[in-house]
Each structure stands twice: as C-alpha cells, then as structure tokens.
C-alpha cells in the first residue's frame, strides 16, 4: 500500500471517530515500518485538522468532534510509549483545565471548547459543571496546567470567574496560569474588568486564543 493511502486510512479513521478502526490502521502502519512520529504527524494530525475545519464549516457537530477526540486519545495511548521508546518527544500544544463555574449547569459550550482544544493538540482536563472556584485551582496544580478556562452562561454566575482569579491570587499562583473566560453573558469588556488573560466568544476563538497563548510561552 502506498504511503499516501496509509496516511489517508489513518486520517479517515480519526475523522470517522472510530477508535477500533484507528487502532487497526495504526497497527497496520507500524507493521509496515512507519515510525510512530510519522503516524501521528502525517496520518492522524491531518485527520484532526480536517475534523476541526468541518466543524467550523458546520458540516459536523459536537458528537463527531467528541468521537474524533476519543479516537485520538486511544491512538495516543498506543503511540506515545512507542514514541518515547524511540527517543521521540510527546508533542502537546499545552494542558488546559476547563469547567463551568459554580452555580451554572450549562455544559454544551464548555464541551465544544474542550473538543476544539483537543482537535488542536491540547491535553484537556474537563472538570465538569457547577465547579467550585477552588477546584479549578487545585486541579490545575495537580496536572501542571498551562491554561485554566472557565465558562459561565448566566449573568449571576459570571462573578465566579472573578472568584477563580481571587483563589489563584490567594494561593500565590496567579502568574503560573493563563486564565481564559467565555460563555453566553461574558464579553471582552468583562474579561478585562476582572483581569482575565483572554476571552473567547466562540469555541473557535477559544482554541485560537489558547494556541496563541502557548506560542507566546515557547
């Protein structure tokens, strides 16, 4: 089988969000002599990129994004140990702790942002909905996050985003993390007023912002 068609098989399996098919394509590629890094960069990554682009064009939606993200994670469990054993490096865009603030049970926007971040190579730690401010900080400390992202849909839950900043400051770790906010009632003006490091109006904005943040750190 030509290398291009092997790459295509890997990409298609990711685009379909089919974990089993992805693992089978990886196995075949490795047995054919393809290096783990090549599998990721030329096979799986273009598939993830395509998923993100289709989502931006409204051709696919959250379920397809989530399934592609799960297939990617299954693939990485197999490939990363092989990559490290071969002397390669794990390539992550960065680590993000994401959740919806205390008192707010809206999940879809947060889930879409989490999926978009995964599409863009981030390691995402989704801590769910109605999350206490201190938990954002504790989890970020536990996993060594680069970014904390907090969603709030309601005008009466937005103040919790400021509360997270105050918890970061109280623990003396504010400067360790880039703190991003989003959600229906939030705005750039709100983000500026509470001292957040960035605001994403859409999921695409949030992912682009996160990439920009990490590019600035490297």
């Amino acid at each position: 089988m030509a290398a291009e068609s092997k790459y295509e098989r890997l990409s298609e399996a990711i685009i379909e969000g089919d974990g089993g098919k992805t693992l089978a394509a990886i196995e075949e590629a490795l047995q054919g002599g393809m290096a783990p890094g090549e599998v990721i960069e030329k096979g799986l990554t273009p598939g993830m990129k395509e998923v993100g682009e289709r989502f931006a064009r409204y051709e696919i939606y959250l379920p397809e994004m989530m399934m592609a993200g799960e297939a990617w994670e299954q693939a990485m469990k197999v490939l990363e140990p092989k990559l490290l054993a071969a002397g390669g490096e794990k390539k992550k865009a960065g680590r993000v702790v994401i959740g919806t603030v205390s008192g707010d049970v809206h999940s879809i926007g947060k889930n879409i942002v989490a999926a978009m971040l995964k599409m863009n190579g981030f390691e995402v730690f989704d801590i769910g909905i109605d999350v206490a401010s201190s938990v954002f900080v504790t989890r970020a400390e536990e996993v060594g996050a680069d970014i904390i992202a907090a969603s709030a849909l309601m005008s009466t839950t937005m103040p919790q985003q400021r509360d997270i900043i105050e918890h970061l400051e109280a623990r003396g770790v504010r400067d360790k993390y880039t703190f991003l906010v989003g959600g229906g009632s939030t705005s750039q003006e709100w983000a500026d007023s509470i001292g957040a490091d960035g605001y994403g109006r859409t999921a695409g904005d949030a992912a682009a912002l996160a990439l920009k943040v990490m590019a600035g750190k490297s």
């Binding site: 205390s102 008192g103 707010d104 309601m154 005008s155 009466t156 839950t157 103040p159 919790q160």
Partner: peptide, 21 residues
C-alpha cells in the same frame, strides 16, 4: 428580565444575594 444587582451588590447565584435577587 434578569436583575444583576441588588442594593449596589452584584448578584451571585447560590448565595444569599441570589435569594434576594
């Protein structure tokens, strides 16, 4: 509508200000 302030204080859902709001 959604009231965001009571007596000059920002309403925080789940707090006593949420009840008053």
């Amino acid at each position: 509508p959604c009231l965001t302030m009571v007596d000059g204080r920002q309403i925080v859902a789940g707090s006593p200000l949420g009840i008053e709001g």
